[in-house]
Design a protein around this nucleic acid. Structure first.
Length: 405
RNA sequence: GGGUGGAUACCCGAGUGGCCAAAGGGGACAGACUGUAAAUCUGUUGGCAUAGCCUUCGGAGGUUCGAAUCCUCCUCCACCCA
């Protein structure tokens, strides 16, 4: 039923960073193979935001790989941990979010994770299931298993502490909660980003303490955001969401810096190493490589046809400077007009392309505005407004005007 | 409980009576260029139908012709000692 251990290892180890420990992993795989018993592979997701992006999708894809190999995927929806806020990889306390908000996010999370995993074969559990029942006494017992010194070994905390950035006590509880999850679901392997390593190791300690065999900790790289600088995250706005439209995905993928192409290829597409090396060949023009990359990303979450269409549209807008397929309509009410005319600056604001008149005025002065392909440079201009006029601001913002009585 | 240092625009951060709508950096936006929403370079970045006026430097008062800057009280934060 299972492939042999070496074959499995090849799939499992692709794109991983830490394996604690490789020997244990091999041992577990061997046993699973011999006894024909799937490994229990755990991934915890905290629904702190409504969207999954291609960065936090990386471990989900890894979980999917285990699933495809015949192992049991366990997806923990961290509805309780989410309200605490994971301190990993952040330099300040995460704002606490309400339980209602978490449950709302959890719904969209699950459907988005379903784009990657086979949910029918996935054990989905909410960690409120056990945390809700714990008493304060239980919490103290759990907290007693960790020392402050060990907690402070973490780089995240050390940095914050020495920089004088506050660390709340509840943040110390977080890794313990995550570790406790591992006991509850009896995991053999736990996945996570490299920033999760500490928490994954705490899980091992707690399991050992509870008298069960510790899980293997397996981490995947963190993906930089499309700005090429910081970790991809919702709050920094540098992400590609897995539910975004093909056009958006494609455009965002095209905006990553060249030097990140390799990493994106490896972590955000389904292409084989061989194909990737071929596409990044030095004789291939970097733009062509990036187009292939953008296509492959779109294809992973949509389909091939969507990817082609997105690529074609991108060329049309940015190479041929033509209009996109779909231009959003903006209704302008007749009351905005004086003698059938409207002040350009006002129009830009009404279309939502600038927050204030001053900003709109600047856009005009900088030559970023055109109407029906004629550029507008005079910020005092009044224009005669007609339905179907196309307003273009910057390189990629378009609106079709629709008059409303 | 005692002490010290803080709070400045989207973020970081300089500014200690007038030259302050407030340096510098980041981000964002626009333009040029082209290989693209890469890179690089340039510009813009409180509001106002803009040579002027209005509102902003944690909050409320006060001193002064004039306050981000000085004083009082308040709120919040960090650090040190216990």
């Amino acid at each position: 039923m299972f492939k042999d251990v070496d074959e499995q290892l090849e799939v499992i180890l692709r794109g991983t960073v830490d394996i604690v420990t490789k020997e244990e992993l091999i041992k577990k795989l061997k046993r699973s193979y011999e006894e024909n018993k799937p490994l229990r592979v755990k991934l915890g997701l905290d629904p702190t935001a409504p969207d999954i992006h291609i960065g936090n999708a990386i471990p989900i894809h890894k979980l999917r790989a285990f699933q495809s190999l015949g192992h049991t995927a366990i997806l923990i929806i961290g509805d309780y941990t989410a309200t605490v806020g994971d301190p990993s990889g952040v330099n300040k306390t995460r704002p606490m979010i309400t339980y209602e908000k978490v449950l709302e996010n959890a719904k969209t999370y699950l459907s988005q994770a379903g784009k990657i995993l086979d949910l029918k074969k996935t054990e989905v559990v909410y960690n409120s299931e056990w945390f809700k029942k714990m008493t304060f006494h239980d919490v103290i017992q759990l907290a007693a298993k960790m020392t402050v010194a060990r907690m402070m070994e973490r780089d995240d905390f050390t940095k914050r502490y020495s920089a004088g950035i506050p660390i709340s006590v509840h943040e110390f509880i977080y890794p313990l909660m995550q570790g406790y999850d591992s006991i509850m679901v009896k995991s053999d392997v736990e996945l996570g980003g490299t920033d999760q390593l500490f928490s994954l190791l705490v899980g091992r300690d707690l399991q050992r303490d509870a008298g069960v065999e510790p899980q293997v900790a397996l981490t995947t790289p963190l993906l930089e955001g499309i700005d090429g600088n910081k970790k991809m995250s919702k709050s920094l706005g540098n992400y590609i969401g897995v539910t975004e439209t093909p056009t958006e995905m494609f455009g965002k993928a095209m905006s990553i810096p060249d030097n990140l192409m390799h990493k994106y290829f490896e972590l955000a597409t389904d292409l084989s190493i061989k194909e990737i090396n071929h596409l990044l060949n030095i004789h291939i023009h970097p733009r062509a490589s990036k187009v292939s990359l953008a296509r492959a990303i779109v294809q992973r979450y949509h389909d091939k046809k969507d990817a082609e269409a997105a690529a074609a549209e991108f060329d049309r807008i940015f190479k041929e400077h033509e209009l996109p397929d779909k231009i959003p309509d903006v209704e302008i009410s007749g009351g905005e007009l004086t003698d059938g005319k409207i002040w350009v600056v006002r129009l830009i604001v009404l279309c939502g392309f600038a927050a204030t008149n001053g900003e709109a005025r600047r856009l005009v002065q900088q030559g970023g505005v055109s109407i029906n392909n004629d550029s507008v440079n005079d910020p005092t201009l009044n224009i005669e407004l007609k339905t179907d006029m196309i307003l273009k601001v910057g390189k990629r913002r378009f609106a079709r005007i629709v008059m409303k009585k």
